[in-house]
């Protein structure tokens, strides 16, 4: 049962990848990337149950923080740009 759920959760990443590849503007791509980061945390949690290794949740926590820093950096970069640059 848990394996099937893991496959579904991994398949959801394809939706985000579609948005990252096809997104009409840069902001769409960044939204896709942000959501991708949160989905990976869910994958980490399910894998931690399946393999019974608690340290994989540490990877998830670190992933939350790194994804947050990445998104904030990209947003700050985008904020000081204009469409015609």
């Amino acid at each position: 049962m848990l394996e099937i759920l893991l496959y579904i959760q991994t398949g959801l990443c394809v939706f985000c990848l579609y948005r990252i590849i096809r997104g009409p503007t840069i902001a769409d791509r960044m939204v896709g990337l942000d959501i991708f980061g949160i989905l990976v945390v869910g994958i980490c949690a399910i894998v931690a149950i399946l393999t019974e290794r608690p340290y994989i949740l540490d990877v998830g926590i670190a992933w939350i923080i790194l994804s947050f820093i990445g998104t904030i950096t990209l947003a700050k970069y985008l904020e000081n740009k204009k469409l015609n640059e």
Partner: peptide, 25 residues
């Protein structure tokens, strides 16, 4: 991880919305 996720996800959403408005979308 739950409160951490709440704070980071919401703050990232604010930053993205503001940045994309100021970018000109």
């Amino acid at each position: 991880a739950i409160p951490l996720l709440f704070f980071t996800a919401t703050v990232a959403a604010h930053a993205l919305a503001k940045a994309s408005y100021r970018f000109g979308i």
